[in-house]
Design a protein around this nucleic acid. Sequence first.
DNA 1: GATAACCATGCAAAATAGTTGCATGATCGA
DNA 2: TCGATCATGCAACTATTTTGCATGGTTATC
Lengths: 315, 315
Amino acid sequence: MIDARLITLRVFARCGTIGATAELTGYSPSAVSAQLRELQRVLGMQLLTKDGRGVRLTATGRFLVAGSDPLIAQWESLRAAAMEAGEQVQAHFGIGGFSTAAAQLLAPLAATLRSTRPLLEVQVLEADPARCYDLLIAERIDLAVIVAMQSDAYGEDDPRFEQTVLLDDPLDVIIPANHPLASRTSVTLEELASEPWITESAGSTYHSLFTAAFTAVGVTPRIAHEAVEWETHIAFVGAGLGVGLLPRLAPLHDAENVVRLRITGKGKPVRRIVAAVRRGSIASPLIQESLGILQANADRILTARLETARLEGDQ
Amino acid sequence: MIDARLITLRVFARCGTIGATAELTGYSPSAVSAQLRELQRVLGMQLLTKDGRGVRLTATGRFLVAGSDPLIAQWESLRAAAMEAGEQVQAHFGIGGFSTAAAQLLAPLAATLRSTRPLLEVQVLEADPARCYDLLIAERIDLAVIVAMQSDAYGEDDPRFEQTVLLDDPLDVIIPANHPLASRTSVTLEELASEPWITESAGSTYHSLFTAAFTAVGVTPRIAHEAVEWETHIAFVGAGLGVGLLPRLAPLHDAENVVRLRITGKGKPVRRIVAAVRRGSIASPLIQESLGILQANADRILTARLETARLEGDQ
DNA sequence: GATAACCATGCAAAATAGTTGCATGATCGA
DNA sequence: TCGATCATGCAACTATTTTGCATGGTTATC
């Protein structure tokens, strides 16, 4: 039960603009403006200053936002403990995640929760990892499934979140079905060093994983094409334009002219998928149950994919 | 910035009835009822149960209220630190106390604050010590001046409050001006053992002080009359009905036929006057300034009274 | 055992935030 | 200089909250 206006201030501290705060919280810009003005009036503190065409937090504002982190955590902790002690049932539950996670992990989670907790209203939001963190702060969602990136501004020790590793999703190689190596069950990156590669645009989420894997084995791949969606990657490979990387969680569907191969040797690229919650809320029965379901589903999908791809899992 | 509904729940936890909660918070009973119902809805917890003709907190409700104590304290602490760090000026300040304190300490405090902080809106509430604690919980006041009583349910270690001793207000003896001892500057309780005494009714706030002082010297006083207000005590003494005790802070005004004498020897009765604030808020600049003003005023009044009463102070 | 007092709650009406959508002013980049 | 971006003010609207009274259930009193 933290006042909504303080939550709004915290979201603003992340976004920096009233407009972005409004978009994230679901209010209109003028509503956010009015809320923050009212907050300053009630507290008797000047929290914002005009800065160019925008507004900026004052030192007092930054102090208050930083200091509210443990306050939020303590409330979440209290709420979780009360839910657990009283065996109460929650009414609403918001979960978010990036596209692959939303399809592969969040949808089953929502379905399972709907059967185990019929009274619970589950809302799933598909969003970028960065936006997921923002949505957690804005209390629009209570749990997020995201790809952990060391480049993210949110470290594991962020006072606002608690993260638990769900699984390490290895990246496989996808090559055309008529490729000489297509009959193999696994390949090394060196064997594919001279292939034309399909990757995401430089600076994107997975590009750093891509380059890190190849620098580990000491080769520099030739980047032939760029794509954003995994579906596009697969289509490009199917068209014989080159080879690419595909997370094992991402489905190949029934692309008949594309083969998925396990990567062996050094530099096996892996994307770490973690569940993030607001700090303190992890003890909540609903969160605990959800984490268990997510874990179970992740393991199940991972092994199932191994079989369909005719791969022998090593983990 | 703790949600108002949680504050209402905390007040209810003290009062036990919706009606009393409404009276203390300033809402109407049905507003309180609706607020608590809404609170249960958004939290997804059952906090109240029907109990006879009233309602009662559930185990979950008690858990939540008890657990919210540190939450409130942490918020107050954060707020105080932000006020201090940012050199901000508060807009509203509520102070409360019992009648003598209100007249002798709170009114000067309000006057001083009005000159040092012209933008601050000060509100003074006169209320019982017990009600002062309730008003602090309800956030109707921010500082209370009360008589510390060991019989109170609020100990010094209450997680909701922080108390600082303002002064130990000694009780003087008031006797008729034509009394044989009236020319003395001090007396012992033994010397007045056979006098008819005027006191408060048994079980009242000061009655325990009264009896404790006399048991310390081993005599049992004869209680002749009972009065509630100090003004009445003085009038009774002036009419020659007996002798009585009067806190040094309480003014004698210009009662010409009443003399105030200092008590010496064993069993000097003293009432301890403390300032109470919500835990965490004591670091606030405004609270700090107020405590200083209160202390200074208390000392000044105490010494001034000594002079007008022709008493030589020993402390 | 009947009556009165008390307590919480429901309901409709009223008050009061809070929100929206647009317009305005100000600022920054091109 | 022009266009884009951003915050804010204002009027109208919406939703929520609060009020005042009436009701039903419970306890104490006679």
